[in-house]
Design a protein around this nucleic acid. Sequence first.
DNA 1: GTCTATAAACGGATAGAC
DNA 2: GTCTATCCGTTTATAGAC
Lengths: 224, 224
Amino acid sequence: MPRIDSTPDAKTRILDAAERLFMENGYAATSIRMITGAAGVPVALVNYHFGSKQGLMEAVYERALGSRGGSRVSYLDKLELDAAGKPIAVDVLVDAFLSSALRLTRKDTISGEVFKQLIGRAFYEPGPGTEAFFPAEYREAVDRYRQAFMRTLPHLSQDDVVWRMYFFVGIVAYAMAGKDVMRMTETYSLADAGNPEGIMARLRPFVVAGFLAPEGTLPTAVGT
Amino acid sequence: MPRIDSTPDAKTRILDAAERLFMENGYAATSIRMITGAAGVPVALVNYHFGSKQGLMEAVYERALGSRGGSRVSYLDKLELDAAGKPIAVDVLVDAFLSSALRLTRKDTISGEVFKQLIGRAFYEPGPGTEAFFPAEYREAVDRYRQAFMRTLPHLSQDDVVWRMYFFVGIVAYAMAGKDVMRMTETYSLADAGNPEGIMARLRPFVVAGFLAPEGTLPTAVGT
DNA sequence: GTCTATAAACGGATAGAC
DNA sequence: GTCTATCCGTTTATAGAC
């Protein structure tokens, strides 16, 4: 079905355009006509191939996530096997979590950057295709990581561990898909902006240190 | 104009409903009819009072931000005066940044939680009222804080400081307005969820440690 | 599978009575 | 200031020719 080269077929072109436009504008602000216009196909093809606008959105996520219904925690399995019951270092866990959360890209169908934007958008803008299948598949992975983090950070309460994982995914989601309202990346012409690997390199020390931080509140020095 | 008690007037009810629905669904996915329906007023009142849907959105942000066009950095001014040229402690800067970015709430018109949701949404979903006045006013404040952070963290490059501030606002935006797709807060029945002050208490040590983290990349231990 | 034409509903906005 | 009724463009979705 997929062509070797030259222009892809209509269905693929629709998916490509939808992927880009949904990410740029969001689901509600993107009309079918914008998509078909960008793809160069008549409007009716969306409903023919995907049934509805919602079906198209779901198809975008399905293509991105791929058919790997399988183990998103296989790498964590391997780590724990190697560790043989001993706690795993925080930086290793952080890297592994980044990998399972973000590196399940199918390079053959979609770019890593676009996929990460998809993930990021799913975290803050619910829509068809996002809430649908995220929870079940990812929540178990999150729980596995929670257990691993708690083993390596025994001084933290479960609440603190979960909160810090929450902050972690928040940073990633924002860095990958958040609109930079303050224009920080452009006003300071930030190195590595727009380059996921570069962002990860900057992000890693920050997050690792955050996980290693002591529990409890610091003295609040703010008056008014 | 504002009533002492009982049900507020139509204009206020529209603002209240719009505030809630815009935050829940986003700008594009919320129709005027949904708002007027929730407010129990006829549709025409939106255009009468606010001119347009966009005008309503802007009014929501205006009411939230209040009339304080003035100094959002006044507290930082005071801190720097007290410090007399010496660097300010990281945790103090973090608290101060949180305050200027998030605690400019007018308690009389709007709750702190809703306001923080507004701020959060502005960071990842541009729309009328957000890009309009955020940049100019906040970017200078960001730059002031950047300078302060660089004085207290001289071992970091400017890029690293800006990146970490970026991560900082990302965490806050996500914690305040992000959809918890993984249901972390509910699966673990997280303490302090939904309570901004509680979130801040959890967030502070994480962020402070992140700022204090050493520069550079940690050894990457992830294979495949 | 692809396209044209059209249906049916919904969107924001307005006119004009009260 | 508040409400009813309506205009008009755009939206999703479909019917049917090719």
